[in-house]
Design a protein around this nucleic acid. Sequence first.
DNA 1: ATGAAAGCGCTAACAT
DNA 2: ATGTTAGCGCTTTCAT
Lengths: 342, 342
Amino acid sequence: MPVTIKDIAKAANVSRGTVDRALNDRGGVNPDVSARIKTLASEMGYKPNTIAKALATHTKPVRIGVIINSLGNPFFDQVLDGIESAVESLHDYGISLDIRKIRGYDPQRQLYELKLLQDIGIDGLVITPVSDAKVRNALNEMIRGGIQVTCCNLDIDDVNYQAYIGCDYYCSGQTAGEIIGVTTHGEANLAVITSSHALYTHEMRVKGAESVLKKYPNIHICEYIEAGDDEDISYHEVMRLLKQNKKIDILYFVTGGTTGGLQAIHDMHHENRLKVYAFDQIPAVIEDLKSGLVVSTIDQQPFMQGFQSVRTLFDAIMSKHTPTRKRIITELNIKNRYNISY
Amino acid sequence: MPVTIKDIAKAANVSRGTVDRALNDRGGVNPDVSARIKTLASEMGYKPNTIAKALATHTKPVRIGVIINSLGNPFFDQVLDGIESAVESLHDYGISLDIRKIRGYDPQRQLYELKLLQDIGIDGLVITPVSDAKVRNALNEMIRGGIQVTCCNLDIDDVNYQAYIGCDYYCSGQTAGEIIGVTTHGEANLAVITSSHALYTHEMRVKGAESVLKKYPNIHICEYIEAGDDEDISYHEVMRLLKQNKKIDILYFVTGGTTGGLQAIHDMHHENRLKVYAFDQIPAVIEDLKSGLVVSTIDQQPFMQGFQSVRTLFDAIMSKHTPTRKRIITELNIKNRYNISY
DNA sequence: ATGAAAGCGCTAACAT
DNA sequence: ATGTTAGCGCTTTCAT
């Protein structure tokens, strides 16, 4: 039978109220008594019962806002699943959700949604932040105002958030580099398709891969293409590339735009002379894993990213944690045609 | 503000007790009244507050027994972590744990521990069952006696358990086969080291790999070695193999015994002419992923297997589910030297 | 500074 | 068949 506040009260010869006050540092209790209660509690192996706690404090629901750049990017559908699942798991504790879906990485749009949520009134925010000075300032201002923030999938410097939940981008690049190196037996002419060199996180994925690939003297990175996380641009850029550079035999898709790029390969009928390495388990990638065009893809646990973003945020709000800038790094997992999970 | 049982009672002009009885089909309530209450509840959008429910029913802790063949098999340390973590997460609901660790796959020993736990008295059992008629019968008898059972990591036929939580062994074999095929460019002389052809699950891993490898005309499976999940046997068998068959260049370790086998390779100084493909992220495998001897390993989420075994069991006990023979299949994830997770 | 008591939403034992 | 009441472990208000 687990030890309760009542047991401690009896052992310490005080009332349950005093134990509660002491253990939670609510003040108004003799320091000596408080110390005695605390040592007694740990000696007896007391662990607070959080469900009773939740029931007792159950007043207004915690309001959580979400700003996520999911439109036109199927990867984020899985993040959203995780967010919604976390909210469901917290239903009994009282929680409400307001999701604002936006397209691409436009700071102005993020700022707009930020103000909107602030006006509506929220207790916590999950965001996929763009690295922009104004967004940075707006977030820090919110945090100073007592609104907890967790960053999901994208990290941002100099913001005093509660936690970043996402993958290690550099490491994911290294992992991809290693796969490319091993599966090509060190012979390849590579094109790298990325969003933009300006997006720090995605650039880390390029650098990570390069750091591994430079060990292979016969692997050459011939082209870098910036497709701005846009399927149309990616489609046309890959199309152009395939027409121009016949030497390329490996395409390394760093991020969004993979769907468009794969389509270009199909439309050019180059499936048989090319191999593709990608990230995430989005529908187009899964399809071409099965067809054999995509050799492997690297998963970063999008569901977990969404789920943990909400759970961490909720915990922080409930226990009134001060921001910790904690980094929760999700696992990276390599998938081939046989171990796809969706 | 969410609607409670009290609100419904007022609306239906009955007592809270009656509402509770009606909504939970506890019997002893007028069918008409019951129906009225139920429609009213759904109209009002009533959702039971499970934390209040848990608090109210919280009387005796749920006693969970675990029989796990973890001794001498480092893989199961991670399963145990998951089990303990789940128990911790359920602390507030009242749960007690009794873990019996055993070595290898001896039915007699499992039966002994089974009786022991039954004598002590448990509400639910997590087991890594060996496929044996007596174990099968003992488990079915327990289940008839009202003790819920979940099978962790190993499945067993004809047992009316609540759930199996583990990987798809055949699929894990296919995944491994594909990696071997792609990374060797279809040129390899293979030795397969398995526990025993009698262990159905492990045999599935062999068959899965074969089904993929047969597509490669120049990949030959030259040797099958049974090492009985024992590090010593594995060590000596691999040693013997390396002395005898100089043609072998790839070792495929299906299950336990990997640590011993890797040691043999090192002792024979054959690290440079061999490549190894393995399962799970046990310490020896991680070390040789880093050294480059192991090309990749396939993770089956041992933590999740332990965690889910307990959670599923607990849910079944709390809600008095009848056994469902549900299968919860954990993800398979390929790891190379850069995306190891432990 | 401390104690006593009410109550969160639900269940279960006891009345009627 | 239905109502009443006492908790589950904790917080919080009101007394002292």
